[in-house]
Amino acid sequence: MFDFDAGKYAAYVWPSFAITALAFGWMIADSLARARRWKREVEARTKAKT
């Protein structure tokens, strides 16, 4: 059913998917890390203020 055999083009097809997966992984990790970091910073500063 699935065709995972890219034959002589495997050296081009699989790196394309791997690089795309890495890029998505970085975008997700970086976005969530930034949001978490600055949310904690605001919470800590708000707590210190009150």
Binding site: F24, M27, I28, S31, L32, R34, A35, R37, W38, K39, E41, V42, R45, T46, A48, K49
Partner: peptide
């Protein structure tokens, strides 16, 4: 959809970053 989700997350982070900067200035 992925772009929409990640963009919203990053805008939220940016809003918090600016709020943190204001709170740091007030402190």
């Amino acid at each position: 959809s992925a772009f929409g989700s990640l963009w919203l997350v990053r805008i939220r982070a940016e809003v918090w970053r600016r709020r943190a900067a204001v709170l740091a200035l007030q402190a």
